[in-house]
Amino acid sequence: MEEGKVISQSLQESAAAYSIIHEKFGSAISALDANETMPFFEVVDTLQWTEIALFMRDHPKLKFNYMACLSGVDYPTEEKLGIICNFESLALFNHKLAVKVKCARDGGSIPSVACVWHTANWHEREAYDMFGMTFTGHPELRRILCPDDWEGYPLRKDYKVQDQYHGIKVPY
């Protein structure tokens, strides 16, 4: 933190929440990016993601009871895909955190947190539908928006639309 910089109450609380998680998981998570908009950290040891999620939900001083969003991201330069999850603690605390989890671009997988927050169920299906990473432990991982037999993952940066779908021309 730069000296003399005024930081908001909610950012301070978010940083405090982060230090509780960091105390428990240490090097499994990255340092906190303490920006005012959405403070975030990255899960370095992806395999521990579900455990971290459970800890974030159940720890009496964290109680992240609300997953506001789960978005997929494509990082073609890093050869990676990822998700960004936004958490809040409704009616309990003012802290909020975003968590990034990344995996390999080809055949990569991320542990599912659908068992921790039920919101994640459909959100992970959407991320899978649009980007193609798999979520291990997801109860029903199949496409949610595109038809089941759709080819490719539309929100990847290198996506090329298919010429025909069931005999119907797709491009303009």
């Binding site: 928006l145 595109c146 539309p154 996506y159 639309v161 119907i168 021309k169 797709v170 491009p171 303009y172």
Partner: peptide, 15 residues
């Protein structure tokens, strides 16, 4: 959606 709408039929008269 004519250009970037990968999921949109470009005119119902195609079907």
């Amino acid at each position: 959606y004519w250009e970037h709408g990968y999921h949109v039929l470009k005119g119902v008269d195609r079907i």
